[in-house]
Structure formats: C-alpha cells, structure tokens
Design a protein around this nucleic acid. Structure first.
Length: 920
RNA sequence: GGGCAGUUAGCUCAGUUGGUUAGAGCGCCUGCUUUACACGCAGGAUGUCGGGGGUUCGAAUCCCUCACUGCCCACCA
C-alpha cells in the first residue's frame, strides 16, 4: 500500500506498558468518569457493585487481582453501555487479623498490647492501617480498577461505625441480639471468641484413650477436660446399663474419688465404644446442651489462657494441653487406663487466623439469634408471611430468585448452610474493632434470681475467676439492666448513676462487613445514593467467603433495609500456582506477585491471564509463562494498531460502518458483527473467558492474519481499517483498559474510550466465499511446505477450479499474494499430474507445477496418505447414510450435509487415485 | 458420615440446549528478514474425551455404576 504523502506516525514496535500505564491511570483520575455523577451522559440506569473490601493491612495478592479484573470488566462494559456505574471501593478493618499483625510487630519491639494499654494500642493500629491503606489504594489503581474513589469507605470510619451501632440497637430492640452464657470457640492466642465459621479443622493423628470410670469404660482424645466429669450417660434402652440409671456411686478418678451419677439419654449411640460416656459440660458444645437439658452444673476447668482453673485441683494453673501426659500417667498409676489407641485420626479445631487449637469454653457473650421470628420490614421481599427469622428470610430471597447465585450449584451449599445455622456469636475480646454499643451501670442491688454467671465482663483477659464462685455471688446481687444505645448515654435511666462503663468487647468483623452494601451508601440515613444504587447489581467475590460474608450481607440487608443486598452473586475460584497448590507466603517460590508481574508484563496481560481460561466457581492456575503469553497478545494488538496507523496516517473516529468494497471487506464486517453480538451477550452473562477467547480469535486469527494481509494487497481501506481498529479497541477495553485507552488517543476523540459507546452489532449475511478463498490459500501454502519448495522462490500455481472458478478469478491477486505465488491462473487445462504437486479443497483442485523441484517419492507418499484418509472418511459417511434410522430420524439438514460431504469425498478419492496412477 | 466439583493433546484449560473428521494457549518439530509485530510469520505432529454399562439414528455432552483427585459441611464420647 503506498504511503507517500501520509503523515508518518511514530509508534515503537514493541509495546512498553510500564511507560504508558501510569499516565493513563492519571488521566482517568482526572476525568473522574468512575464517579457516576460526573459521567458525560446523565441518563442511564444505575449499575452498582460494592467492592469486597480488602483488609486494610493487606497487600494486593493474586486473589485480589482476579476480583479486580472481573469487576472492572463488568464496570467498564456497563459504563460503555450507558449505565451509570458505581463501583464503590473501600477497606475492611479485619479486626482479628489486623490486631494479630500489630501484636506481632509489638512483640518484635519487645512489648505487648497489655503493656501499652487500650488507647495507645489502638493509636498504633490506626497508624499502621493508615499506612497500609495507601498501599492498597495504589495497587488497585495499578490494576486499572475504575472504581469511584470519591466514595471510598472504611469499615471503621465514622459513618460506618454509626451504621454498626444502629444495626446493633435495632437488632437488640427486636430481640435478635441477646447476651447469653454459652460454650464458645475460644482462641487462647487471640484471646477471643470465634464464630463457628472462624474455626477450621486440621486432621491430626493423636492418641485415643480408654479409661475405666467406675462401672463403665469411656473414651476420649482429650483426657485433660475430664477432671470433673461426674455424669455417666447411657442409652435408655441399653440393657447393659439399665440397672445403673439414676444411681449415684463413688468413682476413683484423677484427683481421688468423685461422686458420679448415671443418666439416660437417647443421644448416646449404644453401638459406639462401650455405649457409655461421661460428659464435660463446660468444654464441649454437645455436652453443654445435654447438661442444660438435664440441669447439670457447668464448671469451667480450662480458662481463657488455656490453663487449668482451681477446679483442676493439683493441676491448677498449669497449661491444660501440656498436662495431658501427666494426667494420663496419674490415671495409669491408679490402673484406670484400659487401652490406648495410638493411631487415632481426628479433626483438631484451630483458629482460622493463627492456627492455634481452639478451646471450647463457657462464656457470657453476645449472640445474634437467627431463629427467632421477627417482623418482615418490607413487602419488597415478597415474603409470604408477616414474620420471619433471619435465616428464613435469607433463604427465601435466594429460593425465590430475588438473588441469583452464579454458578448456581452454590445455591445448594448456601441453603444447607443457612438451614443449619446456629446463633452467631458476635462479641470478640479484642480491642480493635467496633466497640459493642452497650453500657453498664455498676451499681448493684441484692436480688436472687440471676440465672447465669456474670463473670469477667470488664476484664475478660485478666486472671480468670472461677465461674461457679462468681455465680454464687451473682445470685445475691443484681445490677441495673444494660443500656443499649447508639450514642453513649449520660446517665443510667434506672438509677441516675452517671458512671457508666461501655462493654469492653468489640464486634465480629463480619458484623460490619455484613452491612457493606448499604452502610457505604449512607444507611441508616435515606440518602440519594442508597435509593439509587441499592440493591447493588452484582456481588463478585471468591466462593471461600460465601458463608463468612455473602450470607451475612443477605441476612443483614433483608432484615435492616428490607431489600436484597444485590441481585446477582458471581463467585470466582481460588488462584493457585502451576502445581495446583494454594499460593501462600510459606511457598514464595511458586506464588505470583501480581505487582511484579504488572511491572514486567503490564496490567493488561495480568488481567487477561486471570480471566481467560477460567470459569466461575472453579479454581484457576497462574504462572509466569501464562502471563507472558498474554503480554504477547497485547503486543500483537499494539502492532495491529501500529500497522493501521502507518497505513491510514491520521486516525479518525468512524461513526457508521464503511461500505464494503471487496469480498474481504464483506467478510471481516460480518465477522465483526458476529463477534460484537457474541461479546455483548456473553459479557451480560459474565462469560468472561469465552468472550475473551472469541475477541482474541477475531483479533489475531482473523483481523491480523487475514484481513490486514489482504489490505496490503487491495489497498484503499483507510476507512475500513480505522473502523475495525476502533471497534476492536472498544471490544477489548473492558479486558485490557490500558493499551486500548492509550491507542484510542490516536483517534483524537473527544471522550476517553472508557466512556465511549459500546459497539452495536449490525446485520450482515455470512460470507461463505471467503472460507473457500482461505482454504485455497492454505492448500497452496501446504503444498509448498510439503513439496519442499524453496520458499524464497516464488512459484507458479495453477488452480483448476470447478464451481468456484468465478470467485477465484476475481481473487487471484489476493490469493497469489497471501500464498506468495508469482503467478496464479485459474484454468481448466491442467498440467500432467506427474509434473505437479496437487491438492483438493472445497471442490477446487490446486496444482503446483514444479516438475524439476518436486520430490516424486515424497509426493507419492503424501498423496497416498491423503487418499487413505479420504477413503476412511468416505466409508464412515457411507455407513452412516446406509443406516435407515439415521436418514429417517436425524434432521434433514444434517442428512443433506452428510450426503454432500460424501459426494465431495468420493470425487476426492477418484482424483487422488488418478493422480497416484499418473505418478507411477 | 453427608454434599459439591473435577478427570479431554506433554502442560494449563475451553467445549453453550446431544449433530461436521473434539478445540485454544503454552511446549514440541520443520521452514522463514514476508519492511506492523521473532512478544513474529507459514506449515506440522500429538487425544479409545478416567474405566465399565445404558438411552439414542447419533454421546466428551443425558442416565447408572466404579475408580481416582480436590473442596465444603458435620463430627460420636
């Protein structure tokens, strides 16, 4: 194509993302189109996503990267489609995790939070968080995330804290939050309770002991909890023990004789072990329930430090787990060890944050009651009754299709979890977090009906008092009722006392995250944002926090706002290394640091590698070579633009598709239309991988490999090329925002690509002729390759065209150029087969007349292979068509297509036979 | 114990409601300065779609069954 007179454009031949991306980020920030209020078109339906807030102390890892990539694709796509997109970013204070990190830092400095004191410690955490938040913000921008920073929130900022208090007060008012003495999961290292979901199970091989306990044999993996066991439970229908039920007896035990009684309860499995067990009400969830049922005393023998209480007699003060062997030895000496199973495998429960074994112990804590009925706030939820429990309502909105979970198989796990949900322990004994908005008046009144221990409200981390002793005191005293209030009250409404102390505990971090979709929009105030953007359109997050977070948002939103928090949930999988291992800090050698990769290969390549080749809910593997291959693609796109720029000179936006002049033009426009439709439909259905692959295929294998090559031959395609580049940049923009935005600048458009309209698919007929052209070109190339023609030498090709001769005659120039033939003729008169290599494609026979250069033996071999293949295929088709059932039942088009194919193969077989004969 | 995935080319994975001779990327082999790109171009090789059974004219796709891998939930003393 002649380039004289055109303005030459300076574009480096290799795309260098690192030198381009920061400038683009800055330009986006400046234009602030990520803020829906600043969009050029004010109309358009809102579309909102609440960004799952990364931990304020975190650094960007591959999991964040995949989340940002997917959400940004959706946000950019919807924005280009004219929606008013709000993607609201923020960070999570991540109570336990953050406190643990800061405590570790303190340990390095040789101090502890207790030494610092609450306020000084919190100041330190705040400073640490402030530093980290800056890092996360910067890293998110590096990924290209087009979220609205003007609305950024933090779970611990004033507005959100007010929302948390409001939520607590309302739930307490409605009887959904209560304080109770229960067995809780206690982490002795974090010195706090954990919710059921914060406990993980680690398989562990351990010893399992069988002890003689009076008349029965009991089994346990934890002898240290058994000190005060004095109730034997058997099945009511168990003949072996029936005579013992109701009896009391003296039993020799760890610290001497204990008085044990025998009760019957159907929870006991007759066939398991000896069919009898003792119970430890204070340190097992099941035993506690049983104890409540039979009104048995609950005595704590392990305290919050994991040490024995006074109740453990001579072991008091010692670490419980560490004392196990000593206790067994003591029982051994008394001859009470009946058997030890050395290879027992059990699931050790550990803290999900620090891995420390969890101690179940009794404690007075705040809980969310998920089962009690409460008035349904809004008719919007279409709940068939006026009242519902939290879990019923949360299940309902998914059941009734008001929330769609993608992929839908996670619905099942959601329902299962929701159905089996127990009350949620929300108080934590850590300092960092939302302080529970409850105030205590310390004045005490003698009274006698207190049911539970009032232990350790004020200093739970101090030396643990003994529950029983405290509860004896409690039975004689009572305090004023706790005051639950959004703001700190001036005085006790009952006695007027002005000395009020706030509950020292903080709330589970998921309590505040559960409010995220609406607290960030201003709730409880009825703000414009809340009205416009809630319910949010999409929640995109990893399946690992379906329970932790997604379920809790549904609970909180349906109850507090009377709306679903989001219409759709898209769950992505975990990012693993090439070996399928979880990326972790303990294996830095295989972990991929997205920031390193962005620096090396660009954010666009990083994003593509996370999105293409993955499907929702399935884990995805990531390794450097994969990212590099997408870097190659981005560079290809860059060079397509470079070529077009050099060809066209000055790029201008093209509003309407140009009129096609040639076969190739018609073909590429038809392909573009099909692609546009595919991409638009696909992105609406969140088929990121399939869409990415389709656009990739079009860009590289169709546009670059065929159309641009033809453009070099045909010329005069300035409009076509500009148009194609423009549309391709638009289609790619959600996936690769940086390179596309950068290239878009060449068009001199008024608006950035980010807010330019998404392409519309026009209507065009499929262009079948082009496929024939392609196969002829490919066949010639193939012949040249297999006939071992020296490639530098241009050769003459004769195409003996049958029914496509007209088409081929008009395309000889194109075919000749693409196949690199100096001469190409369409003729009926053919050279002798012995002097030419030949091939048949789509009814066209191609001859490469190269008598002198052809390796006759090789050609014969090649023809024979081709003949074999054609015969095999023809035979298969014949059999298929001979089957009456097939011709009768299969759709007509399918049968016709098979017939056609058979005819083609048969003629191919004939011709190949002739050719082979001629060669001999 | 209950549930959910996965098993397709050497590797990582697609494969929409059953319908051309099962695809892509990477890797591999051969050849190439072809003035957009060697982060490239052209050509090539490689698969009993985990095993078995069934439904169907037709199965990677639907059903049953077995095996292995992974995850989630529960956890019995």
């Amino acid at each position: 194509m002649p380039r004289t007179g055109k303005k030459s454009v300076q574009i480096p031949p290799v795309y260098q993302p690192a030198s381009v991306e920061p400038g683009i980020t800055a330009a986006w920030e400046k234009s602030s189109f990520a803020n829906p209020d600043r969009l050029p078109a004010k109309r358009g339906k809102p579309f909102s996503i609440a960004l799952p807030p990364p931990n304020a102390t975190g650094v960007l890892h591959a999991g964040h990267a995949v989340m940002l990539a997917i959400q940004d694709i959706v946000a950019r796509f919807q924005r280009m489609r004219g929606r008013r997109v709000l993607w609201l970013p923020g960070t999570d204070h991540a109570a336990i995790a953050t406190q643990a990190v800061v405590e570790k830092l303190l340990a390095k400095e040789g101090t502890t939070r207790q030494q610092l004191g609450r306020e000084a410690f919190l100041a330190k955490v705040r400073q640490f968080v402030a530093d980290s938040q800056g890092t996360i913000r910067k890293q998110m921008r590096t990924m290209g995330a087009s979220c609205d920073w003007s609305r950024e929130r933090y779970t611990l900022d004033d507005g959100l804290s007010a929302a948390v208090n409001e939520a607590f007060v309302r739930m307490h008012r409605d009887g959904l939050i209560y304080r109770g003495y229960r067995i809780v999961n206690w982490c002795p290292r974090c010195h706090s309770t954990l919710s059921d979901d914060e406990v993980e199970y680690k398989e562990q091989r351990t010893k399992f002991y069988y002890f003689t306990y009076g008349p029965v044999v009991i089994g346990t993996a934890r002898p240290e909890t058994k000190f005060l066991d004095k109730t034997i439970v058997v099945h009511p229908e168990d003949e072996r023990y029936r005579h013992l039920v109701g009896k009391t007896m003296d039993v020799e035990w760890i610290e001497g004789k204990v008085s044990a009684n025998v009760i019957a309860d159907p929870v006991v499995d007759k066939d398991f072990g000896s069919g009898a067990m003792t119970i430890t009400p204070a340190h097992s969830f099941e035993d506690f329930e049983l104890a409540q049922k039979h009104k048995l005393p609950v005595v704590q023998i392990i305290n919050e430090d994991g040490n024995f209480t006074q109740a453990a007699g001579s072991f008091a003060g010692k670490n419980a787990r560490a004392s196990r062997d000593a206790i067994v030895a003591k029982l051994q000496a008394k001859g009470l060890v009946s058997r030890v199973d050395e290879h027992y495998v059990h699931n050790l429960s550990v803290c999900y944050r620090c891995g420390t074994p969890v101690e179940p112990l009794p404690s007075k804590q705040w809980f969310v009651n998920v089962s009690v009925k409460c008035k349904v706030l809004s008719s919007k939820l279409k709940y068939p009754q006026k009242e519902a429990s939290l879990k019923e309502l949360a299940a309902w909105v998914v059941q009734s299709g008001q929330i769609e979970i993608i992929p839908d198989r996670f619905q099942k796990t959601y329902f299962h979890w929701m159905d089996n949900l127990r009350d949620w322990c929300i108080s934590r004994q850590i300092w960092f977090g939302h302080r529970i908005p409850v105030y205590y008046c310390k004045r005490e009144f003698p009274i006698s009906n207190s049911q539970f221990s009032n232990k350790s409200q004020i200093s739970p981390s101090g030396g643990s008092p003994e529950g029983r002793q405290n509860s004896k005191i409690d039975s004689k005293l009572n305090t004023c009722p706790p005051i639950v209030s959004v703001a700190k009250p001036k005085k006790c409404p009952r006695c007027g006392n002005t000395k009020l102390e706030q509950d020292p505990d903080t709330l589970d971090t998921w309590f505040s995250s559960g409010l995220w979709t609406f607290s960030t929009l201003g709730w409880p105030a009825k703000t414009k944002d809340l009205k416009t953007y809630h319910p949010t359109s999409l929640m995109e997050t990893g399946y690992d926090i379906l329970f932790f977070w997604v379920a809790r948002m549904i609970i909180m939103s349906t109850y507090l706002v009377g709306e679903v928090p989001f219409r759709q949930v898209y769950l992505h999988g975990m990012v693993r290394d090439k070996n399928g291992q979880k990326m972790s800090k303990s294996r830095p050698e295989t972990a991929i640091d997205p920031l390193d990769m962005i620096e090396k290969y660009g954010a666009d390549a990083m994003r593509l590698s996370l999105v293409i080749g993955t499907t929702p809910g399935n884990d995805t593997r990531l390794w450097e070579e994969k990212i590099a291959s997408y870097r190659n693609f981005v560079n290809k796109l860059w060079n397509i633009a470079r070529f077009i720029s050099l060809t066209v000179g000055e790029l201008k936006p093209v509003t309407a598709p140009p009129k096609p002049k040639t076969l190739a033009d018609r073909w590429i426009l038809a392909e573009l239309n099909a692609l546009t439709k595919r991409a638009t439909d696909g992105l609406q259905r969140y088929e990121f991988s399939a869409v990415g692959e389709a656009v990739y295929e079009f860009t590289w294998s169709k546009l670059a490999d065929w159309y641009l090559e033809i453009a070099k031959v045909e010329g005069g395609k300035e409009k076509m090329l500009s148009y194609l580049l423009q549309q391709v940049l638009k289609l790619w923009h959600p996936f690769t925002p940086f390179v596309t935005e950068h290239l878009w600048e060449r068009f001199g458009a008024r608006q950035p690509l980010m807010v330019s309209p998404w392409p519309k698919a026009g209507r065009t007929k499929a262009v079948n002729d082009f496929a024939h052209l392609q196969s002829v070109v490919t066949a010639i190339r193939n012949l040249r390759s297999t006939a071992k023609v020296e490639p530098a030498k241009r050769v003459a090709v004769q195409v003996a065209a049958g029914k496509h001769s007209k088409l081929l005659k008009t395309q000889t120039a194109v075919i000749a150029a693409l196949a690199r033939c100096s001469e190409l003729t369409v003729a009926a008169k053919l050279p002798k087969p012995s002097q030419a290599a030949s091939a048949m494609v789509s009814g066209v026979t191609i001859y490469l007349p190269l008598a002198g250069m052809l390796d006759a033996g090789k050609e014969q071999e090649r023809l024979r292979r081709e003949l074999d293949e054609a015969e095999r295929y023809a035979k298969m088709l014949e059999q298929k068509l001979a089957n009456d059932a097939f011709t009768a039942r299969a759709p007509q088009q399918v049968v016709a297509a098979e017939r056609e194919k058979l005819a083609v193969q048969q003629s191919k077989v004939e011709k190949l036979k002739e050719q082979l004969a001629a060669l001999r």
